[in-house]
Design a protein around this nucleic acid. Structure first.
Lengths: 191, 191
DNA sequence: ATGAAAATCGACACGCGTGTCGAAAAGGAG
DNA sequence: CTCCTTTTCGACACGCGTGTCGATTTTCAT
């Protein structure tokens, strides 16, 4: 008996995800949301006071989901290289379907709402990746290059491609060669 | 005697550049522009029918300026590596002052107006860079790796950093190491 | 200097999204 | 089933940006 409120809240979040992914942040109005969720403006406002709060709730829900990701795999004893491989695959996949990702909405939101939330999010991404890389170094799978720098490189390259792939056709090959480049640097290869 | 119209047109473009750089595309209203240019709404509308047209005019003016850039230097016989160095320096500089660049506005504009303009712009960037790289290969300065791939890598990495640097603090070192990476790949170095 | 053409003004009506509020409906504990 | 609480509804007033238009001022060739 989760309560009606909780249930419609989930319903709204689910409905709005699709909207934000498709249209970005600013283009989405409360009117859009209530249409997508099949409810009235008044009803919607009693759950979320505006698109800002709605989007924040959405972000929270999503990030808490994949926060556990790396950590769990590390604890299971999976090889760092393998975890990396999976993560890169996932990112490549995301880039093939940019219209399903929130990256653009996140950018617009950060632009409007001030960068605090985004900086926090970014720091948490950095932390997760750094942990993975240090774990890999410990295991002797990765080379002891500057972990922070590599993390930055990974995150920025991907953010860039992810965002622009919504606008400019990005070739499979380009994405792939970025991934290769990352792997090569981590392995410390000289070829 | 360039004609009043021409002159105020330039004046408007100049005033709006600062606006677009600071606020992006969508946040800029015709009202903002006429305030910044010290003129009335009616007057402004007799020059530009809306922010779309205004921004397009601005883009055109800007891109035609640096279109000649590489070509001119190549013709002067400057070394490819030196041209590259200068271009990278310029980009690093731009990233230190993201609030003066139109990158965010360009992205928002593309998102709204459809990607045609942006794709055209991108193709022209690609062409310029490719020409430079081929020129470098011809001279024996660069290695004959896949030119298209490298160009893509350059453009995407920079776009990504450029945009996110408006939101997330980007360390000097990160930007620099991206540049290093590009140079290394072009030189075909193995270290 | 002068008058036709060009450029500018600012008030107007409009569309759209917002956030609120009292009435109506649905929920759910006993 | 009943009754109090929670949730939903949709109409309202508001703010803001838009694009237009006839009146007014400025420009510039003669």
């Amino acid at each position: 008996m989760t309560g009606k409120k909780e249930r419609t809240r989930e319903h709204i979040l689910k409905a709005s995800y699709a909207l934000f992914a498709k249209k970005g942040f600013k283009q989405v109005t409360m009117k859009d949301v209530c249409e997508a969720a099949n409810m009235s403006r008044g009803g919607l406002y009693s759950h979320f006071s505006g698109t800002d709060q709605l989007f924040e709730a959405l972000l929270e829900k999503i990030t808490e989901k994949d926060a556990m990701d790396f950590q769990g795999k590390i604890e299971k004893g999976m090889a760092a290289a393998e975890i990396l491989e999976e993560a890169l695959k996932l990112m490549e996949e995301e880039m093939r379907h940019p219209e399903d990702s929130l990256s653009m909405a996140m950018y617009e939101y950060a632009e409007e709402a001030g960068s605090d939330v985004m900086q926090r999010l970014n720091r948490s991404s950095e932390k997760r990746w750094k942990k993975l890389i240090l774990y890999g170094i410990e295991n002797g799978e990765f080379q002891a290059v500057d972990a922070d720098e590599i993390v930055n490189m990974i995150l920025f390259s991907y953010q860039g491609v992810r965002m622009w792939s919504r606008i400019i056709p990005v070739k499979q090959k380009t994405v792939h060669s970025i991934a290769q480049n990352i792997k090569r640097q981590l392995r410390g290869e000289r070829k």
